[in-house]
Amino acid sequence: MAVVAIISPNLVNRETGMHEIVAVALDGSILLDLGVPHQVFDSARGATGEALYRVRIASIGGLPVSTSSGVEVSVAHGLEIVGEADTVIVLPGREARVGPLNTDLRDALVGARERGVRIMAICTGAFALAEAGLLDGRRATTYWVRSAEFASRFPSVRLEPDVLFVDDGILTSAGVAAGLDLCLHVVRTDHGAAVANDVARQLVMPSVRQGGQAQYIPRHRPADDDDRFSELLTWARARVGDDLTVADLATRASLSERTLARRFRERTGASPGAWLVAERFDRARELLESTDLYVDEVARASGLGSAANLRARFAQRFGVSPTEYRRAFRATVSA
């Protein structure tokens, strides 16, 4: 087993006097992703205004990188500069997600890890780290749209699909915007809250964003080709604000509760009880987004009981309070 050296995250290059960051760009990148490390780390300044980081972009073979926008981006460096890095960031892209992983990239990442270099990935860049075996046994996250695929391909990784970022020795973030959260976290870890807060002000974003990516995942309605079962789901959704129970569902469907549970798992992937809870949360989210109802009214209308119960369970499920969720997602309601 290779011995991994541990370095201080504040280590600076003796020649430049700055922490050297190499961001690896891969084909199929999103333009915004390419700019995230520069946007955050270039804005970080010390007490006398000195730059704290230098960010350089590298690609496999130093070749231009295609983007999902149809724009090809020229890159000045190949993977050889990974050897000069204090931090390596793998940016998301089609090439990060679709294997097999390029051998030169794998060698560069594994070699960097063995030298004690800090390793990060933004969004689906986590696929490349997992392909290189760097996330085995570790907690990690990735873009929620790709979470099921990631979990299936890399069962040895302890995926946390609902969070914005994970720092478990190797750092990973959720979607594109969560890359900003992760990079701010690194600045805060390296240089303290004051520097991170100053960077956040320049970016016009909170220094610490509340909640995780669960609050951004769309409400889902599984398709169903069984008319009788679809009728049951429609009937139940119209009554989630009532004191509806699994026994009520079974009676409505003229099934035993055991048979109902089997049918629910076959059709929705969840138990009847879990499905009811999810539907009640969906109803609460819908009301918070589209109405002016008070929190206690939302709680009653969604079948989640009291305002106190809604607040506690909402925070546990989504990482934010109902009020914070409404502030982030509420549409304008006509007077």
Rank of each mutant, 00 (worst) to 15 (best):
V3H: 15
P9E: 12
N10D: 10
V12G: 05
R14P: 04
M18C: 14
M18Q: 15
L26G: 06
I30L: 14
I30Q: 08
I30R: 02
L32P: 01
L34T: 13
G35K: 11
S43W: 03
A44Y: 06
T48Q: 14
E50Q: 15
R54I: 10
R56Y: 08
G62V: 07
S68T: 12
S68H: 07
S69Q: 11
V71T: 13
G78D: 13
L79D: 05
I81Y: 03
G83N: 12
G83W: 10
E84N: 09
D86A: 05
T87V: 14
L91Q: 07
P92K: 10
E95L: 05
R97Y: 10
V98G: 00
G99W: 14
N102H: 12
D104T: 04
A108N: 05
V110E: 14
G111S: 11
E114H: 12
M120G: 01
T124H: 02
T124D: 04
F127R: 04
A132T: 03
G133Y: 08
L134S: 03
L134Q: 04
A140H: 03
A140P: 01
T142E: 05
V145Q: 11
V145D: 06
V145C: 00
F150R: 02
S152K: 07
S152C: 07
R153S: 15
R153P: 08
F154T: 10
P155R: 05
S156C: 07
E160K: 11
E160Y: 02
F165V: 09
D168R: 11
G169M: 10
G169H: 07
I170T: 12
G175M: 08
V176Y: 08
A177E: 04
D181V: 11
L184T: 09
H185P: 04
V187W: 05
V187C: 08
R188N: 13
R188A: 14
D190E: 15
D190K: 05
G192D: 12
V195G: 04
V195D: 10
A196R: 07
A200P: 04
A200F: 06
Q202V: 11
L203M: 15
M205F: 07
M205G: 02
P206H: 08
P206V: 08
S207G: 13
Q210M: 04
G212A: 07
A214T: 00
P218Q: 05
P218W: 02
R221M: 08
D224L: 09
D225T: 05
D226F: 00
D227I: 07
S230W: 01
A236N: 07
D248M: 11
A250V: 08
L255C: 00
L255N: 01
T259M: 08
T259D: 10
R265M: 06
E266T: 06
A270N: 05
S271R: 09
P272N: 08
G273D: 10
A274K: 08
V277S: 09
E279M: 12
R280I: 13
R283G: 03
R285F: 06
R285Y: 04
L287E: 09
L288N: 02
E289F: 01
Y294G: 14
V295C: 00
V295G: 00
E297V: 03
R300K: 12
R300P: 02
N309D: 13
R313G: 00
R317Q: 15
F318V: 00
G319L: 09
P322F: 02
Y325V: 01
R326M: 03
R327T: 07
F329D: 04
R330Q: 15
A331E: 13
